[in-house]
Structure formats: structure tokens, C-alpha cells
Write a protein that binds this DNA or RNA. Structure first.
Lengths: 346, 346
DNA sequence: ATGAAAGCGCTAACAC
DNA sequence: GTGTTAGCGCTTTCAT
């Protein structure tokens, strides 16, 4: 991008005014009273010359780069990561900012180096986004800088973060099944002990217990969070003497396995078993047949909310910004075709 | 990120030398002969003070921002887009550069505005990446700037681009089936007339015809490129009197539908029908049962290759860069479990 | 109502 | 071997 740029000087010369004036009219600076004629002349020159201010030079003076850094563990590669990026990007755009995206790949060393890069480029703030809901420490150099955690939380209360509300999600899943009339529920959880599995279980168990169901009618198992894991667990669960008629799966992929298990057992969905997934994963929940009823993760919203909070802190420049906020964002229920009332003889 | 930065001046003062010396040491400038002692002192001061040069200031002087712009139609959101970004990012990193990612959402107006943003920020070059293989015009303001098209081609020969080699992919798909011994082939194509559907068909037809099969034994249909579309087409195809034993689907999602059709028809995969997909879409090709044999799209590689070419052009600064190159990148075959020899009585 | 000039942090001629 | 200095393109006091 070498070609000689048009600078503010060129415009000034062309309009026969000083650079100050050009700057003042183009940024319509509050205190300055320019005659309409001058303004007109300047704008006309700028337009005719195709002048576009150098953001670099501006940043240098104003000490605001108009960029926010987005550092993710792997975020760019994952289908969900993209949504968070998009949310952040849209908000950044509204604040005349751009996103500088870097990836750390979970390694602290790389993360530090990337953070370094971002700082050297004077980003105005940092969005630290995680691929999956987890706890995250923030690099020591970043405390005191504007930063917000997206899809991750911190035990350090001074940092702002947003995560999905897994508990309510689990509760909603149970509720969908209960509302359809199911009296024997099953939950196939992820065997990894992570916030998502813990939260979804908590919500599910809470709601199920609160429904007056006998403990024997609430089955919880866990398996590898994959299609195969879901298949095996569902196979076992649905093969029991009095199998659940309403099945909640930790995620859509496990639900995919459950579909296969049901088919092999001669069980139709939703006539014989109802299934609820989680994640609303593109190309799977829609592609399954029947289309999967599921709970969506609010990725776009988390990205957008995080960016919004970040700009708040940035724009409270120098001053003491707003107090840190922690948000558990509601996971929307997506009703599709995999839930129906249980068969009468169930 | 307001906090007073350590500048080169601070280091110079601390080390008792001039800023030039600091600059020379830290960038180990070729022509300059510094005593080891000076070097040591400077480095020590820099380290102790935690000095990190301002990339902004550097860019201003050197007229290189160390950033490349990545503009995508929707790229950040899609699972494949992430891979391209990652490829580009890795290469950028190797060139001490960062990616400025913007999204145009297919609207020319927005694209122009975003490009504008990028230019104003003095990106060193632009990667124009498409969500799916297509033809793309490049914004008029960008001719003459370093730019390369990723996953898109241009009829304008002066621009460098890279796309997947769909034809060879289609040929490979046919080859997999043929090699397994199938003598009745079917291809469920995407009904949209796009480079991917055209190319895959061309390759498939070519190879199939070259195998000596009777035209009657080569069935080609097309449908909506979704799970449902695949289902319907497969249902029709496999329901024929002498159905194909080897089925190639335009993409993995259609293959997903074909699995369902086969199941309903009482056909086992791969014993009764072999299936080959395309795209190697995460979470679907692996999650299907049996795991889907497919042709992968080289997204990461396209991103990386494109970035590499871009840096070539950028680094051939001012001089006449290398001639534009056009590449059709081979799509790797992923052998999994959905292909087997046809049953003897087939 | 407009302009001169300082300076943001750095690099690169050019002196010494 | 090392230092002085002039910008890169812009914003912002402070004069006038």
C-alpha cells in the first residue's frame, strides 16, 4: 500500500487554509467557529482529492488506536468462536473500532507473546474469549488494563465477564420434557467435570426433583461428549426395563448418537422418545431428522455484550470506569420437532 | 491502555546513550558497529524498564503497519472460514504481522466501507476470502494494491488467487468407489450452478466415463444442498430397480440425508451402499455412523498459501512483485468407514 | 475565525 | 562507535 497518500497538508494547500482548519472542520471540533464558506471549501477539497486521514497518525496523537484485541484460545477455528467474534465485531464497528484477532492455542507462553503484540500495538482494550465455558486467569500484565472475559469467568472479582447460564439451560431442558407430559426423564451428561456439565446437571436435577417425580424415574448417566458417547449411553439408558421417555443430552452431538441408538432399538422420535439437545450446533440440530429441539448457547450475544462492556471501560477514559459486572446469559430454547407427549402406555 | 508507556527515550537516558543507539541495538541494524558493552547496557536497560517499542510509531516511520487486512463475506462465522483465518494467521505470525479481520456480508457497499477502513489503517496488503468457492470481483480501489483472493477466483488475470481443485476432487470420489469395485455409481449433486457443483460433476463424470461403465450405470441427480435434499435424492436414487451401489454426495450434509434414506430402505452402509461425501465437515463426517469417507476442502492451506503469496508481493516492495499466480489446490481424500466393496449379488 | 508550532514515539540520514 | 536531527501525518494548545 505504498502509493503516495493524500495528506492533510495537501488538502490544506488545495483549500488555501491551514492544516489546523482542515483538522477542525473534518472533525467538527466543538469550540471552533468556522465560516460555512471555509467549511465548504475544505470539505470539497478533501472529497475531490480523495483524502482519508491516516488512522496511524491520529492514533499517535490521540493515544487511541481504535482497535480492540481479541485473544482466543482457539476461537477462530471453532463454529461457535466465529459467532462470538461476529458479536464483538458488530459492536466494535458501532464504536468505529476494528478487531485485532490473535490465537493462543491454550499455551500460556504463546498467550503472553500475543498479548504483548496487542499491547505494543496500543489496542484500546482486550477481549479474552474462550472456546468453551471455563475459568480463566488473566495474564498478569493485563490487570489494570481494560479487559473482559467472554465465555469464561474468573474468581477475581475485579474483572468483568460473561458466560452462558448453564443452570437455567438445564432447568429449561427438564421443563420442556415435563411440560410435554413426560414422567420418566433421562439425562446423558458429559463425563468431563466442567462448568457446563455441572451447571446443566444442577438445573436439570433441580427442576426434575421439583416436579414430584420419584428418584427412580430420573436417570442420569454420563459419557464422552461425542456422537459415539451419546450413542452408547442412550443405548444403555433406553434398553432398561422402564426407560425414560424424555431424554436430555448434554449436547447436540450426543443427541445425534442418541438418535442412532433409538433407531436401532426400534424407537421412533418423538413418538416413543423425546430428545432435547444443547448448543444448537449449526448443521447438526437442523440436519437431524426429526429436527432437534435444543437449547442454544448465546455466543453472538456474549461477544457483543462483552465488547459493549469493554467500550464502556475504555470510554470512561482515565476516570474510574464502571464497577466490574458478571453476567450469566440466558440460553434460548429452540423448539423443533424432537419432543412430543409420551405414548399413552409409557 | 492509557498508563504512561516506557519510550525509547527512557531507555536511552537510563543506558546513558542516544535514542539512535538504542534503536540500532534493538533492531540490530546491519551497518552499525556497537561495542558489546553498549549493546549489553542498552538491552539490560530495555529489559529492566520493560520497554516495548510502539508499533504505531514504527509504522509511521517505516510505512509498514505490520498488519494485513482480511476481508470476508461472512467468513468469521462459518466453520470453514475459521480454518482459512487460522492458516492466514499462522503465516502472518511468521512474518511478524497481525490480521485485521472485517466482514462485508456480501454487500458491496459495506465491503467498500470496510476496505476503506483497512486502507486508512495502512494495512500492508489484503486477503479477500470467500465463504464458498466463487468468482469475485475486487473493489476498484484495490487494483494495484497487494491483494490475493482466497477461495475465489477472478477473470482478471492480474490478480493472484487460490481455490480448491473441485474437478480432481470429483474424480477422486469416483475413483474411490471404482477402486472398491463398484460398477453402478450415483452422484447426488447440488442443484445450484456454482463452481463446486460444476467442478465436482465434471471430475466425477470424467472418471466414471473413463472406467468403461455403461451410461445407464452412472446416475446423476441433484437437489438442495442440505440434509433433506440429500435424503430425498438418495431415496429416489436408491429406490430404483437397479440402484447404484456406490454413492457420491455433493457434501457431507447431503450424505447425512443419504444415510437416513439408506436406513429407511433397509440398506446398510457400507455393506449395501457405499457413500462418499465432500467437505470433511467437522462434527458431521466424524459423527456419522459409520464414519464418512469424504474429500476435504483445503481451507487452512488456502488461507496459508494466500497469505504467503501476499507477503511475497508486499516484500517485493516498490519493485515489480512476482507475476500473479492462480492455484487450484488438491482436496485430500479422507478414508473412513463408509466405503466397502459391493455385495456379490449387486 | 484562523494559523504556527509543538509533539506523539520512532527510524534513518548524516555528522562527528 | 555514537549522537543530532528531521520528519512520518496528525491533533491541540495558544497566539493573533
Amino acid at each position: 500500500m505504498a502509493r503516495r497518500r493524500v495528506t492533510i497538508r495537501d488538502v490544506a494547500a488545495d483549500a488555501g487554509v491551514s492544516v489546523t482548519t482542515v483538522s477542525n472542520v473534518l472533525n467538527d471540533v466543538p469550540g471552533s467557529r468556522l465560516t460555512p464558506q471555509t467549511q465548504g471549501r475544505v470539505r470539497e477539497s478533501a472529497a475531490r482529492l480523495g483524502y482519508a486521514p491516516s488512522v496511524l497518525a491520529q492514533s499517535m496523537r490521540t493515544r487511541r488506536s481504535g482497535m480492540i484485541g481479541l485473544i482466543g484460545d482457539q476461537v477462530a477455528t471453532t463454529p461457535f468462536g466465529g459467532k462470538m467474534i461476529l458479536g464483538a465485531q458488530d459492536v466494535a464497528k458501532a464504536h468505529a473500532s476494528l478487531l485485532l484477532v490473535v490465537t493462543s492455542g491454550f499455551q500460556r507462553e504463546i498467550e503472553d507473546a500475543e498479548v504483548d503484540q496487542l499491547m505494543r500495538r496500543q489496542v484500546d482494550g482486550i477481549l479474552h474469549v474462550s472456546m468453551f465455558h471455563r475459568e480463566a486467569g488473566i495474564p498478569k500484565r493485563l490487570v489494570a488494563e481494560p479487559i473482559v472475559l467472554v465465555n469464561a469467568f474468573s474468581t477475581d472479582d475485579s474483572v468483568t465477564w460473561v458466560v452462558p447460564d448453564e443452570v437455567t439451560g438445564g432447568r429449561d431442558a427438564a421443563q420442556i420434557l415435563l411440560a410435554a407430559g413426560h414422567r420418566r426423564l433421562g439425562f446423558i451428561n458429559n463425563e468431563d467435570d466442567i462448568p457446563a456439565s455441572r451447571g446443566r446437571l444442577e438445573g436439570f436435577a433441580q427442576r426434575a426433583a421439583g416436579s414430584g417425580l420419584a428418584a427412580a424415574d430420573i436417570a442420569v448417566t454420563s459419557a464422552d461428549a461425542s456422537s459415539d458417547g451419546g450413542y452408547r449411553a442412550a443405548r444403555a439408558l433406553l434398553g432398561r426395563p422402564k426407560p425414560p421417555t424424555g431424554l436430555f443430552c448434554f449436547n447436540d452431538r450426543m443427541a445425534m448418537g442418541a438418535y442412532r441408538a433409538a433407531a436401532e432399538l426400534g424407537l421412533r422420535i418423538p413418538q416413543d422418545v423425546s430428545v432435547v439437545g444443547f448448543d444448537d450446533q449449526e448443521y447438526v440440530s437442523e440436519a437431524l431428522h426429526p429436527r432437534l429441539t435444543t437449547i442454544a448457547l448465546p455466543h453472538y450475544e456474549m461477544g457483543a455484550w462483552g465488547a459493549e462492556r469493554l467500550f464502556e471501560r475504555i470510554e470512561a477514559l482515565e476516570g474510574t470506569g464502571p464497577a466490574p459486572v458478571h453476567l450469566r446469559l440466558r440460553c434460548p430454547v429452540i423448539h423443533r420437532d424432537s419432543v412430543a407427549p409420551p405414548a399413552d402406555d409409557a
